[in-house]
Design a protein around this nucleic acid. Structure first.
Length: 646
RNA sequence: GCCAGCGUAGCUCAGUGGUAGAGCAGCGGUUUCGUAAACCGCAGGCCAUGGGUUCGAAUCCCUUCGCUGGCUCCA
């Protein structure tokens, strides 16, 4: 065995535990890396080779530890509620869960008791031992134990693969592994929540009780993780949306419908103006379309067939049935169709901030992120098949630029394609799907963007690029999507006249950059933790007089700022200055201008930034020039640092 | 939609069978203040909703609505 420049000789039948001992590795070693493989410590050596110790930092070791934590959870539940039937219990991103079928659901108090029992199991430091058995004995074992879900899982294991069990003390589970050596390794863990979850994620199957938890080797890592959860809570757009008075959802008006308050509406307006500007630069025509249309139109488009579950019931208008739009595409197609189009008109890029309404089941609504009425930054590009790839690249360019302005610089691209098992869910024949997928893939390649293939994620009318953006906390959000569609042009029989004078069928791209205004702004709130960069801040500057005596000067400063296009609040209330600063700070106003006798005399302002604090005094003109530049440049960070001045 | 939890003043929350409370916000005063909360007073609630149990319900039980965490589904 070799490790770095050291080596040791071990007898055959030794395990990686012996390797660990031989090299004197510390106790935080969870697994051993051997080439590309990660081995659990109790595994037998496969031969002579070079190895590396794997600790919690290694993803595989982390998953093994959390998987062991899941087993400890199951063991604790079995001790406290022997009648519980075990389903599955995997490690997941940031933690683990285990699903149980229990006659009465778990309560939060149960969670505490289970956690206490788990602590006991950890302190018992039970060895976690792998065992391989044949199918028949496994079948008998789980039948005797009365674990029907395990039996079901067992039957699905492919023939010929070894069937493995893991035992710790009295507990045994059907499991592929790998695991930590003993329950004692799971030093820091916490159960986080209980939730219902369908067996196999199928709502027709029984609902099980799922317990979520997380586990670490070190207590401080657990604490850091819990702090992060706190931070996520603090940034929650629902909380900040209320605190900053950006938007609300009114019970009297109905769930999933967003009310944009003046400050939120202002942010949205600024973003929309930016959006229009950038789209015009890129050769888009901006349009408006109605909110309802005849049922017949939705039959033609195929929505009535493929998208019915997400649409609201028809309403009768003079005995003709109309539907509220869940998408903008049919309207844009009608506008395309309204004139004879020449190849010279293509590509045609039709953009709209279009408000659509979709039925979402009550349980899925979530703040402004998942709602029933929302405004998409939608566009439909009509082009020739030859132009398709270039157009996709153009959309990717626009996307990258716009996201960058908001500070989203990392993203993951997914190529969403049909589920080959379930072609009935999609419209159109194989050849057009293949053409679409090829164009999307080629565009991604040209942009040097790495991507993963996402089976079954395509829309009903075509394949798509779905881009996930990473926010300030490293969380992924559904961002831009670009969909190729050969199907709707066919259904609406749209055409353009080619160079040859004959009719040809254009290709269509559906695309959105921001997604929806509701979701995008909610995402931004969390991304910025409510502290919008200057160009987006509803209030950019708060003018705060030191005392009433400077009210006149404060108003003069305010007027000057307004004149220069700043969004300003002047706080002339009877409160003390400290109070006003606090209010502005809590509202996350970027700049506070404190004006007292000194400033009034010299025509200056004392500048305080919400995150940099007191920046000293500036001539009003200088402040306006620099803050103006910061806003104009859409800077993500303040341009007025103290260091620069001194 | 399903499972669980929750719903008390504009907001954040106390109150678990015996007369509805606090802080902040609001309003009225006093204070004119130098970088994150001045002081005094006033007002504010059909305890989400409808029903039941009880001498008596914010509190216990059921209904409906909404919210939260998940499952399933999505911009």
């Amino acid at each position: 065995m070799r490790w770095e420049d050291r080596s040791c000789v071990l007898e055959s039948g030794s395990t990686y535990l012996d390797v660990k001992k031989a090299f004197g590795w510390k106790n935080d070693v969870l697994m051993v890396g051997e080439g590309d493989e990660a081995r659990e410590l109790r595994a037998q050596l496969t031969g002579s080779c070079s190895v590396v110790p794997l600790t919690f930092d290694d993803e595989r070791a982390r998953w093994a530890l959390r998987h062991t934590a899941a087993h400890i959870l199951a063991q604790a539940v079995k001790r406290l509620r022997p009648e519980a039937k075990l389903a599955i219990g995997p490690a997941i991103e940031d933690g683990f869960y285990y699903d149980f079928d229990v006659p009465t659901p778990f309560t939060p108090e149960d969670l505490e008791k289970i956690e206490a029992e788990m602590k006991k199991i950890v302190s018992e430091n039970l060895p976690v031992v792998r065992e391989e058995i044949d199918r028949e004995s496994a079948r008998k074992l789980f039948r005797d134990m009365d674990e029907p879900y395990k039996e079901e899982l067992l039957e699905e294991l492919p023939e010929g693969e070894p069937i493995s069990l893991y035992r710790q003390g009295e507990f045994v589970d059907l499991c592929r592994g790998p695991h930590a050596v003993s329950t004692g390794m799971v030093k820091a863990f916490k159960l986080l929540s209980v939730a219902g979850a369908y067996w196999r994620g199928d709502e027709k199957l029984p609902m099980l009780q799922r317990i979520y938890g997380t586990a670490f080797v070190k207590q401080e890592d657990l604490k850091a993780h819990l702090d992060r959860l706190e931070e996520i809570k603090k940034r929650d757009h629902r909380r900040l949306g209320k605190e900053l008075d950006l938007f609300s959802i009114q019970e009297e008006g109905g769930p999933g419908l967003v009310y944009w308050h003046p400050k939120g509406a202002l942010i949205r307006e600024i973003i929309e103006n930016f959006w229009r500007e950038e789209h015009r630069k890129k050769g888009y025509d901006i349009v408006y379309s109605p909110h309802i249309a005849k049922l017949e139109l939705w039959k033609t488009s195929g929505h009535w067939n493929w998208y019915k579950d997400n649409m609201y019931s028809p309403m009768a208008v003079e005995e003709v049935e109309y539907l509220l739009k869940p998408m903008n595409c049919p309207f844009h197609i009608l506008m395309f169709k309204n004139a004879t189009r020449s190849y010279r008109d293509l590509p045609m890029r039709m953009g709209e901030l279009g408000t659509v309404y979709r039925f979402e089941r009550s349980g899925v609504l979530h703040g402004a992120l998942r709602v029933r009425g929302f405004t998409q930054d939608d566009a439909h590009l009509f082009c020739t098949p030859e132009q398709l790839e270039d157009e996709i690249v153009g959309v990717l360019d626009l996307t990258q630029y716009m996201l960058g302005v908001f500070g989203y610089s990392e993203y993951y691209c997914m190529l969403s394609v049909r589920d080959p098992e379930d072609k009935a869910k999609y419209a159109g024949d194989d050849s057009v799907w293949e053409m679409g997928e090829a164009a999307l893939a080629a565009a991604l390649k040209r942009k040097n963007l790495e991507y993963k293939i996402d089976l079954g994620e395509a829309k009903f009318y075509g394949p798509a690029i779905d881009i996930k953006i990473k926010d300030a906390l490293g969380r992924l959000w559904q961002g831009p999507t670009i969909q190729v569609d050969f199907n709707l042009p066919e259904r609406f029989d749209i055409s353009y006249i080619g160079e040859d004078g004959a009719k040809h069928r254009p290709v269509m791209i559906h695309r959105t950059v921001l997604g929806s205004m509701e979701r995008f702004v909610a995402g931004l709130v969390e991304h910025y933790a409510g502290a919008f960069p200057l160009w987006l801040s509803p209030t950019q500057v708060a003018v705060i007089p030191v005392s009433e005596k400077q009210a006149e000067y404060a108003l003069k400063v305010t007027e000057a700022l307004k004149e220069r296009g700043f969004r300003v609040d002047c706080d002339l209330g009877a409160e003390k200055m400290g109070y006003k600063i606090r209010q502005a700070q809590l509202q996350k106003v970027p700049y506070m201008l404190i004006v007292g006798a000194r400033e009034a005399e010299n025509g200056t302002v004392s500048v305080r930034h919400r995150s940099l604090g007191d920046l000293g005094s500036f001539a009003l003109e200088e402040f306006m020039a620099r803050a103006g530049e910061e806003a104009r440049a859409k800077a993500l960070l303040p341009l007025m640092g103290r260091s620069e001045k001194e």
